[in-house]
Design a protein around this nucleic acid. Structure first.
Lengths: 144, 144
DNA sequence: CACAAATGCTTCAGTAACTGAAACAACCAT
DNA sequence: ATGGTTGTTTCAGTTACTGAAGCATTTGTG
C-alpha cells in the first residue's frame, strides 16, 4: 500500500463539502416550497423579502439579486400586477424608481418567512451550546 | 424591562439561520460561477454532475432534480448537442433512455468539481477537529 | 452656463428552465 | 388479447435571465 499522495482534498473535507451541498439543497427546496405556497416563484420571493426590509431602487435590487437591471423590471412588474409591490418616484432623483412592498406584500413576506420549515425544525435538535459552536464555525467559513 | 415573551425564534437561532442563508448564497454563487466558466448553466452543471457518477434514465434524473421529465428532455438535448452527454437505450426496457456522460462530459464534470472555490478555501481555515465538529452538527441538522 | 459623459430604468430580441397536457411506444397484469 | 401503467418526447405557455438599444435625468468639466 503506497503512502497517500497528499490529495487536493482530504476525505473529511469532501464529506463536509457534501454536507454543505445537502444543506444548500434542503434550504433551497424549502424556500421554493414556501414561495410556491404563496404562488410566488423563487425569484419573486427573494425580491419581495428584500423589499420587506426597505424600499429599494431597481438598480440596487439588481445588484443584490446579482442579475441585470432589465431582469428586475420584469420581476417587479409581475409582483406589481399582483399588488404586492409598487413603484414610487425617488424624491431625490427623478431617474430612480423605488420599489416598495405594499401592505399586502409585507403580509405575504412575513408569512413566507414563517413558512420556512427548515429554518426552524432542524435547528431544534441542537442545544444552545451546539448552536453557538455552529454559528462560530459558519462565521469563520464565511469570513475566510 | 419586561420578561422576554418566549419568542418563536430566539436571537441565536435567527443568527444561525441567517448564516446558513449566507452559506447557501455563497455556495450557489460559486457553483453558478464554476458552471459559467465551462459555459454551462446551473441546471446543466447539476445534471452533468449526476451523470458523472452513473448513467441514469430520464425519469430518475427528473426525480433527482425535482422537476418534470419534460424539462429534463431539454437540458439533456442541449448537453447532448455539445457532446457532453449521450442517450443510450436501456437493454432491459426499450421505453427507457439512459442519459450518460461522454468522456468529454466526465472531464468537464471533474473540472467543475475542482473549480468550486468555496468548497476549498474557507474550509481551509478550519482545523481537522473543527471540521469534525462541523460535520457532526450538519449531519444532525439534516437528520432532524 | 453648456454640454458631454455617466447613470437609472425600460423595451426588445433571444435563450434557458420550467410546467402541464397530449401523444406514442413499450411494458405488464389479468 | 386488451387495458392500464410507465417512460419519453412534443407542444404551448410562463418566468428568469442576458445584452443591446433607447430615453430621461443627473453630474462633471471646461
Amino acid at each position: 500500500m503506497p503512502a497517500p499522495q497528499k490529495p487536493r482534498l482530504d476525505a473529511l473535507t469532501v464529506e463536509v463539502v457534501e454536507l454543505i451541498g445537502d444543506v444548500v439543497a434542503r434550504f433551497y427546496e424549502d424556500y421554493e416550497e414556501a414561495a410556491g405556497e404563496h404562488a410566488l416563484t423563487g425569484a419573486q420571493a427573494r425580491l419581495l423579502s428584500l423589499l420587506s426590509l426597505e424600499p429599494l431602487p431597481m438598480r440596487k435590487l439588481a445588484r443584490k439579486l446579482k442579475c441585470e437591471p432589465s431582469n428586475v423590471t420584469g420581476i417587479v412588474d409581475r409582483l406589481e400586477s399582483r399588488g404586492l409591490v409598487e413603484r414610487r418616484p425617488d424624491p431625490a432623483d427623478r431617474r430612480v424608481k423605488l420599489a416598495a412592498a405594499t401592505d399586502e406584500g409585507l403580509r405575504v413576506a412575513r408569512e413566507l418567512r414563517e413558512g420556512l420549515r427548515f429554518a426552524r425544525a432542524p435547528l431544534a435538535g441542537l442545544s444552545d451550546e451546539e448552536r453557538l459552536s455552529l454559528r462560530d464555525l459558519l462565521q469563520r467559513m464565511l469570513n475566510a
